[in-house]
């Protein structure tokens, strides 16, 4: 009888503990999935890239179970506010416009925008010369805002960065303005990228990229900031950085 009781106690205890183990936080992470090398889908439908690796490292640090949800770039912030996921790790620059709609964590990398055009072509990046060129960029990006505010006129706005590259290589646009490190990946990895190069000096030198969350979720924000600090300190961040870039983008 005594034995039986002990067994029951042990069973109950294990139940409690396993229940504790089960009670991990679960999050859905919003990622665009069309922005190599930061995030895109491979043939088996798996999201890969810098953003994905960072998101998974953060989740591991927070001891949370994370599920990736992909979204169109256009709708990535609306879908966050529509609770389709809990935070966005998708190369989202921290801007005043976006701060009206969402909160951001500390930045997890820095970027800048730069023009890219065909090799050997004389492409000047002063405003006057830009006005006479057909320029393209992705809709709802820092680059789009900059072009609209500084150059204006007939700018081609694309749903995905990939479609913008397709049109650059078909010659529909003279140049693209986009995030420098994304273009870096395209110039290096894409067969079409070999005929193109950066033009002029980068603009928006101080572009910080952060994780976006719904307004008022300060608990989650604190957790994410802490996890970000931890992966930077323990070398995980550097490992992910080096996997994609031979220089630091922190």
């Amino acid at each position: 009888m005594q034995n039986y009781k002990k067994l029951l106690l042990a069973a109950a205890a294990s139940l409690v503990f396993s229940a504790n183990a089960l009670a991990v936080d679960k999050y859905k992470v919003g990622i665009e999935g069309a922005y190599p090398p930061f995030n895109n889908k491979n043939a088996s439908g798996q999201v890969v890239g810098f953003d994905y690796d960072i998101a998974m490292a953060l989740c591991a640090k927070m001891k949370a179970e994370c599920e990736v949800v992909t979204s169109d770039w256009d709708g990535i912030i609306p879908a966050l506010n529509a609770k389709k996921y809990d935070f966005i790790v998708s190369s989202l620059s921290i801007t005043d416009d976006r701060k009206q709609a969402v909160d951001f964590t500390d930045p997890y990398y820095s970027n800048k925008q730069q023009f890219v055009a065909k090799k050997g072509v004389d492409f000047k990046t002063d405003i006057e010369s830009l006005k006479s060129k057909k320029l393209g960029t992705q809709r709802s990006t820092q680059a789009a805002t900059w072009l609209e505010d500084n150059v204006g006129g007939d700018i081609a706005l694309y749903d995905t960065q990939e479609n913008a590259y397709l049109d650059l290589s078909s010659g529909r646009v003279d140049a693209l303005l986009a995030d420098k490190y994304a273009i870096y990946g395209w110039l290096k990895d894409d067969p079409a990228g070999k005929d193109y190069e950066f033009k002029g000096n980068p603009i928006n030198e101080d572009d910080k990229v952060g994780i976006a969350l719904r307004k008022g979720e300060s608990d989650l924000r604190t957790k994410l900031n802490l996890a970000l600090k931890e992966i930077k300190e323990d070398g995980t961040y550097k490992k992910i950085n080096d996997k994609y870039f031979p220089f630091s983008i922190e």
Binding site: G75, I77, P78, D97, Q100, R139, T145
Partner: peptide, 14 residues
Amino acid sequence: TGMTRTIISRTYQT
């Protein structure tokens, strides 16, 4: 529709 989506990208009034 394109214009609306562009306006939304500036205002987030989806």
